[in-house]
């Protein structure tokens, strides 16, 4: 039985038996994997609060055929400031859910790991306006796992320049914009401003996103676009229950 030590994020946990938990972890090296933390719900558990959702932790575990056995764990970051904001918690949890949706057990994605860490760090540093970070997280995650929607100013079908057009159509099927000739009624209507916003959201590091000014109703539109794209190419929504903010502070996102 091999023994491993790894830095992970806690992205899901399920109560199991009287005092155990099955936790889904996301490591930079190992990707998504699950393990059982025996007795971790007990007050005097050696794990303490290690497996609180979103925590970054160092864990030691034995490899099992189905489930790994967690033998040690210590929280490295528990995002104290983030956890004082309901909106920031919701965004963090939805991003964690997206990791589970996008990645299969054992699939490694170090760039998604770094992105998730950068997103939580930013949410911990500044709790206001977290939805920009959330939409950028979805955009970049899709890109890092190989499903990169194209927001270039050309028609994906015929290559025609789209700069002159004020109204654009994003085709989830094509994964990008189509010109008037090629669109045949399909797709989501966007403006050139939206296209530029999406390019910026994809390119700007999470730590510098706060400088961008994007209205919340626009973020809701971009989320719908990404969800449609994900439904077509991955056959699943990014988040089954849409971008509705459970904190109810999401304005147009709610």
């Amino acid at each position: 039985m091999g023994l491993s030590r790894e830095e992970v994020f806690v992205i899901r946990r399920i109560d199991f038996k009287e005092s155990d938990q099955i936790v889904r972890l996301f490591g930079r090296k190992t990707g998504v994997f699950s393990g059982i933390a025996k007795g971790s719900r007990k007050l005097d558990s050696k794990f303490g609060s290690t497996f609180d959702l979103l925590n970054r932790a160092e864990v030691v575990y034995y490899h099992g055929s189905n489930l790994n056995f967690l033998s040690e764990g210590e929280a490295l970051d528990n995002w104290e400031s983030l956890k004082r904001s309901g909106d920031a918690i919701d965004v963090g949890l939805r991003c964690a859910k997206t990791i589970s949706v996008l990645l299969a057990e054992g699939q490694t994605a170090p760039r998604v790991y770094d992105l998730f860490r950068a997103t939580l760090e930013e949410l911990d540093a500044h709790q206001e306006g977290p939805y920009l970070l959330e939409v950028a997280f979805y955009l970049k995650s899709l890109k890092y796992i190989g499903f990169d929607p194209d927001f270039d100013g050309r028609c994906l079908s015929c290559g025609a320049e789209l700069d002159g057009e004020t109204s654009l159509k994003f085709s989830p099927r094509a994964g990008g914009f189509l010109c008037d000739e090629c669109k045949r009624g399909e797709g989501l209507k966007l403006s050139q401003g939206d296209r530029k916003n999406l390019v910026k959201l994809k390119r700007t590091p999470q730590s510098r996103l706060r400088r961008l000014k994007v209205p919340e109703e626009k973020l809701a539109l971009y989320y719908r676009l990404l969800n449609r794209f994900s439904e077509y190419h991955l056959e699943r929504e990014l988040i089954p229950r849409s971008l509705r903010s459970s904190q109810g502070r999401g304005g147009a996102l709610s």
Binding site: G86, L93, S246, Q247
Partner: peptide, 14 residues
């Protein structure tokens, strides 16, 4: 006193 509990408490306070 876990992440989901904190989130729910904040929602209720609001």
């Amino acid at each position: 006193p876990k992440t989901e509990g904190e989130s729910t408490s904040m929602f209720l306070v609001k």
